[in-house]
Design a protein around this nucleic acid. Structure first.
Lengths: 345, 345
DNA sequence: GTGAAAGCGCTAACAA
DNA sequence: TTGTTAGCGCTTTCAC
């Protein structure tokens, strides 16, 4: 059987409390006593039982992270950032994926799958504001991603409208006149709305067309969806000279279609993605992309959860935190002369 | 405060045990009583405290999954498979990443980071057999990946030697005479050894060269490492007509270098990767790759852990489980005529 | 500075 | 079929 505090106490000839004091680094223990107890701990190979500690303290040391899908490298990299940030605070991360489906997101937000957690970081896709309004769970919830819910939860995101405008401005600055948007969402919710808005605002400001014929809606957000959307636009007879995609996988899928059709990137059509995924740096044509500071997002999300956990949840206003982003220019817009072909920049 | 069994019992006017019976779906409860209790549960919004249950039962309902890195889409997809398989058994997954570094892998295997788990699935890179021999943890451990440790732990993997031979045979079958291997590992451990062995065996059997000049060692296994390795081979003066890479990201990195140098794939150099990552299906040249059955690996790993958990850990021999794999032929070896360009096949 | 004892919420004997 | 109770291993008052 496992050795418990009691065993150690018996072995050292002291009370349970004293052992506990040593284990928890309590201040007022004489060095001699500390060493004596420590010797017993080592001798017996004692390891504290976390379940008991959790039961007693009401904390588990676990936060849950619920992402749409790990297959998208952006989310995989984000998960890595969250895990590291949590580790810095001695927290471990329970991972779940929702497939971006509303019911799953609701279940997760209600703590259905994981009731052993101190907090939850959720990156929703289809979730609607009302789904969160009657949340019974009392563990802190932090939202990630581009949708703005205006609910009493912290929210970490980059400025999606500004980021989209920057991307489009880059294209118009290169002389592109007809910029398509790939990755608007079919159905009721429109998670891409901020990026679509930025796209539209920037084009309108430049006096360029931003009509619906230039927007391709998709069901999902993978390579195949991007390829399908690009195909649809080309088949519609429209011939944009630039494409702004909701994310990198879609941009890469679109580039594949352009390649198959013999259209050159960027000469015939320039392409900009979003997320700055590693994959975009190694294609035959490297991909210009908006690069969110994933590391910061992960860190801020963890800190946000842990702060709420500290107890000021009710007191403090919900915070809207803006993480940084920047545009990384590569071959898909500026051609082979692009600086740092396969590098970071 | 949280509502407990006691509160529900008081509310329903029954004993704690009866509520517990209802919560745990115990057989012998009269329907009337069950409904009455259920009504109180709903009214109070009762949720069982898992920490307490855990303390009592000694089970947490959590298994840990430790992977080298999430950035590699193979591992991300594998993580998704494990999460789904675990969910099917009402288990949730704690995720950790080791960076493929030995010390981290040792810490994880000793349960350092997560002591609240029922079992552990570990995909080691640098871990050495002796690191596991004095494992104090008593929770079941299941190993993933290509290294064969010959230790008393279950091990789920594909037949790497056979897979590598299949890949190389595909290349020689296409008339390639000089097949390089990218992705052997520098340093003491050699996780790629089975794939290198398969590569060597197949070439030797075909009477073709398999000398060290054709093997490029790398520090890591990302796109950049593949690119660097390819560069080194070309700069060495060697001009292979085919490359077999340890994994898809490396193969894609290598293809980028070939592209930059004006070498055509597959005409000048054919390329085969490993893992069949989505990304490989959407490049300018789609990638032929060995496709392991990730879904099966995830499922088998979870089942393996849970079986051991069942208690027969000591009784049963450690199992070596072989998951399936197959070669998916795409443009990087057979050219544009390849069937199913961007599709699954 | 250290010890004794209560109790976190739950499950499982055992009793009724 | 339902109730009573002990105790999982720990932390935490409160004495000493």
């Amino acid at each position: 059987m496992r050795v418990s505090l009691k065993d150690v106490a018996a072995h050292a000839g002291v009370s349970i409390k004293t052992v506990s004091n040593v284990v928890n680094n309590y201040q007022h223990v004489t060095p001699a006593m500390r060493e004596r107890v420590q010797r017993s701990i080592d001798a017996l190979g004692y390891q504290p039982n976390l379940a008991a500690r959790h039961l007693r303290k009401g904390r588990t040391g676990i936060i849950a992270l619920a992402l749409p899908e790990l297959g998208n490298p952006y989310f995989a990299e984000l998960a890595a950032a969250v895990i590291d940030a949590a580790a810095a605070h001695d927290y471990i991360v329970l991972l779940d994926h929702t497939g971006g489906r509303r019911e799953q997101e609701i279940l997760v937000s209600q703590g259905f799958r994981a009731r052993v957690i101190d907090g939850l970081i959720l990156s929703p896709i289809e979730l609607e504001p009302e789904d969160l309004s009657d949340r019974a769970e009392k563990v802190p919830l932090v939202l990630l991603g581009e949708r703005d819910y205006d609910l009493p939860y912290d929210h970490i995101a980059i400025d999606n409208v500004a980021a989209a405008r920057t991307a489009v401005r880059h294209l118009t600055g290169l002389g592109r006149r007809e910029v398509a948007f790939i990755g608007a969402r079919r159905g009721r919710s429109e998670p891409a709305q901020l990026r679509v808005r930025g796209w539209r605002e920037e084009l309108t400001a430049a006096g360029l067309p931003a009509d619906d014929g230039l927007v391709a809606a998709t069901d999902g957000w993978g390579h195949a969806d991007g390829a399908a959307a690009m195909t649809r636009i080309l088949d519609s007879g429209r011939r944009p000279d630039a494409v702004f995609a909701y994310n990198d996988p879609m941009a890469i899928g679109a580039m594949r279609v352009l390649h198959e059709r013999g259209l050159r990137v960027p000469e015939d059509i320039a392409v900009v993605g979003f997320d700055d995924v590693v994959e975009g740096r190694f294609g035959a044509v490297t991909l210009t992309s908006v690069s969110p500071d994933k590391e910061a997002i992960g860190r801020l999300a963890v800190e946000s959860v842990l702060t709420r956990l500290g107890g000021n949840e009710v007191l403090t206003e919900p915070r809207r935190v803006r993480a940084d982003h920047r545009l990384v220019e590569r071959e898909s817009t500026v051609g082979r002369a692009a600086p740092g072909g396969t590098g970071q920049g």
